[in-house]
Design a binder for these strands. Structure first.
Lengths: 208, 208
DNA sequence: CTGAAAATGAACCGACCAGTTTATATTCAG
DNA sequence: CTGAATATAAACTGGTCGGTTCATTTTCAG
């Protein structure tokens, strides 16, 4: 047996636990899932679970960290900065909405907010490993686009905050309040296209 | 003693309970507050409390309903639709941010999301009595403004969703994740003014 | 003053759940 | 084969909290 595996991961069933936890947490949030549920789902004893993770929170944070990372990488891979601004924004917007509307995005958000005062580290970790990355990339991209003469942005940080928010217009609030839980591709296109149009109207350099 | 008061309100200490509940819920959210805490704060016995409200949820929903109503009225009173669009939007934006950043707004939101799956009615009630009202008024105002020739808005519902979202750019996410909890007037002005500028760039009718 | 309605408080119930312990069983390297 | 490391099941602890009950006291209209 390869010695590295024992060093890198702390035991044979480490990933099993993580996978089970991810499934349940992402589907039902944090509080409504018991440690017993996770152990059962992961086909692992509770004692084993606690031999890997000090407590439920830490387990959740690890799940969240990994999942955020995965989502960020997926979105980033879909972007080609060589494309015109409108195209890039469209891709980013649609990708963002996909995350926001996914089981993961929704539950991640829910837990961050719900548990905000009981463990604040989570919300901050989420922001740093999720939205923050998007905003940073957005800033960098706007700089490139400005160098290409496609846009003029005085306050880049503000613009980078505005676009993602614009993409969630109408969708996010209805989602989190439970007023609407399913969104058609048409609805998504309408809001993303609307966001791109608005963004370009404000920052785009006129044709020519 | 006036007979109506007995009919309208169900007992002498009804308001006492409501007030105590509001204070605690708005300051600490839903789950972290116990029914015993509320009874103690309201100077009322637990049994009395339960003689007015069937359970903790219903108590919270009533508190939420009243508070939403109050906030909506305050914001509405501050608006003068006779003013130019830019001015009205500025007032609305600043008023909205004040609500969002307040103890009430923040906790209201938190609870809606946190308890979303345990009692969905709350989120929906919140949406209907809060954001929905703003959006509706916004639509109506855009129609008026368009009649005055100040703006041209093809998709009014979308625009009415976009503006409030734009006002929260950068602020909301940092707030709920706990990354930033205090916002200076300068920061608020920057984002609201940015929102108005962007909105006018997209929908405003050029000078003249 | 009086009697019904309202309020009290304190004990109590039952459910839930994170985390621990223990005695037993399985795995696997050497 | 052996023994140390790891895993297991299940019982147990300790605490929280929503909601109920009831015998007693307070309030207040008529």
């Amino acid at each position: 047996m390869n010695k590295n595996s024992a060093i890198i991961r702390k035991g044979r069933k480490y990933d099993q636990v993580l996978d089970g936890a991810r499934d349940l947490f992402m589907a039902h949030g944090f509080e409504s899932i018991g440690v017993d549920d996770i152990a059962r789902r992961a086909d692992v004893s509770k004692a084993t679970l606690y031999s890997y993770f000090p407590d439920k929170r830490m387990l959740f944070m690890e799940v969240a960290r990994l999942e955020c990372q995965r989502q960020a990488e997926t979105l980033e891979a879909a972007v080609d900065v060589e494309q015109p601004v409108e195209v890039v924004l469209g891709v980013v917007g649609r990708g963002l909405l996909e995350i926001v509307l996914s089981e993961f995005g929704w539950n991640m958000f829910r837990v961050c907010i719900a548990e905000g005062e009981r463990f604040p580290e989570l919300g901050q970790q989420f922001f740093e490993t999720g939205p923050k990355i998007l905003i940073d990339r957005m800033c960098a991209f706007l700089e490139i686009a400005e160098a290409r003469g496609e846009v003029i942005v005085e306050d880049r940080a503000l613009a980078a905050d505005q676009f993602p928010e614009l993409c969630k217009a109408g969708v996010f609030l209805r989602l989190v309040t439970g007023v609407q839980t399913e969104f058609s591709q048409d609805e998504i296109d309408r809001v993303v296209d609307g966001a791109v149009e608005m963004f370009m109207a404000r920052y785009g350099v006129k044709a020519g």
